Simulated scan of single mutants.
Amino acid sequence: MARNKHPEETVARILDVAMRLFVERGYEQTSMQNIIDELGGLTKGAVYHHFSSKDDIFLAAMDRVMAPGVERLRRIRDAEGMTGREKIQAMFDSGARGMDSAFFSQADPELDPMRNPRMLATEYRDLFAVSAHELMMPVIEQGVEDGTIQTEYPRELAEAIALLNNLWCVPAFFPARDEGEQARRVAFMNAFMKGMGLDIVLDPQVSLETWRRRCGGRPADEGAQPLG
């Protein structure tokens, strides 16, 4: 068998086809054979050379979906001439629109994280290792050093913010019942972070726009008004 001189192109081709099928059909309705059949001549052996299972393909495809956003946050983390507080604010501003609108607006409902445990598992897998420890904690530590963030618990603060902001506040993972509840969550996050020595602001309008895209724009419950 001739050696593949461009394995990265083969991997990209497999992921392109697989993600299209996952979006169109859903994860459970897409088989390895479906993926192979759509690859136009690429053999089963070639696919299994790079990926041992459909799960492996799915995880790699989701990593690729998330990669541009993670890279943006890494650039902010490593930027010169910014305080720790400014970097955290920039991270929140950069990630506010995230992959939610670009990816989930096209996806089969089965890929909704609330219906598919694989989506939640993929997010939770990277929640602490990437979001909290790799990206946010070094910036909080910088803020403590430069005096713009006041906390004795940089690691714990990074973990708590990552957990709340990446799961609890994101409509794709734990949707609020209405706009009022979503607004209260954002208000709570702002109050929580300020109380923890991290005086930054999440934009409630961006959060509500995301909620409307995910949840259909149901009117706010009159009994659930924003805090403040």
Results as ranks from 00 to 15, higher is better:
Phe188His: 03
Glu181Leu: 00
Thr210Glu: 00
Val186Tyr: 03
Asn4Val: 13
Arg125Glu: 12
Cys169Trp: 05
Met193Trp: 12
Gly69Phe: 11
Arg25Asn: 15
Phe51His: 02
Glu110Trp: 12
Val17Gln: 08
Pro154Gln: 03
Met119Phe: 13
Asp63Val: 07
Thr10Trp: 09
Arg20Ala: 12
Glu24Asp: 15
Ala129His: 14
Asp56Val: 10
Gly95Glu: 07
Ser105Ala: 15
Met62Ala: 14
Arg97Lys: 10
Pro226Ser: 03
Ala176Asn: 01
Ala60Phe: 08
Met196Ala: 14
Ser207Lys: 03
Met91Asn: 04
Arg72Gln: 15
Ala158Arg: 06
Gly45Phe: 07
Ala96Tyr: 08
Trp168Val: 05
Arg118Thr: 07
Gly217Tyr: 00
Ala67Tyr: 10
Asp55Asn: 09
Pro117Ala: 07
Asp16Phe: 06
Glu28Arg: 15
Leu208Asn: 02
Gly81Asp: 03
Met136Asn: 05
Leu198Met: 14
Lys194Thr: 09
Ser101Met: 12
Arg85Gln: 09
Ala102Tyr: 15
Ile161Pro: 01
Leu111Pro: 04
Asp221Asn: 13
Phe173Ser: 02
Phe174Ile: 12
Pro154Ser: 02
Pro171Leu: 03
Asp126Leu: 11
Val11Cys: 02
Asp55Ile: 05
Pro204Asn: 01
Arg185Tyr: 02
Ala107Val: 09
Val170Asn: 14
Tyr27Cys: 03
Glu134Ala: 13
Thr30Ala: 02
Asp16Trp: 08
Val65Asn: 02
Thr10Ser: 14
Glu159Ile: 13
Met137Ala: 13
Ile35Gly: 03
Leu163Ala: 15
Gly180Leu: 00
Glu28Met: 10
Met62Lys: 14
Ile57Phe: 06
Phe128Trp: 13
Pro175Thr: 04
Asp37Glu: 13
Gly147Cys: 06
Phe188Thr: 01
Ala79Glu: 15
Ser207Cys: 05
Ser131Leu: 15
Leu127Met: 14
Arg118Ala: 04
Pro113Lys: 03
Ile76Gln: 04
Asp221Pro: 04
Arg185Asp: 00
Ile76Tyr: 07
Glu222Phe: 00
Pro204Tyr: 00
Gly45Asp: 06
Glu145Phe: 10
Phe58Asn: 01
Glu179Met: 00
Glu156His: 09
Pro113Trp: 08
Asp108Phe: 12
Val201Thr: 15
His49Asn: 12
Arg184Met: 00
Glu71Tyr: 09
Arg155His: 12
Glu159Cys: 09
Gln150Pro: 04
Met19Gly: 06
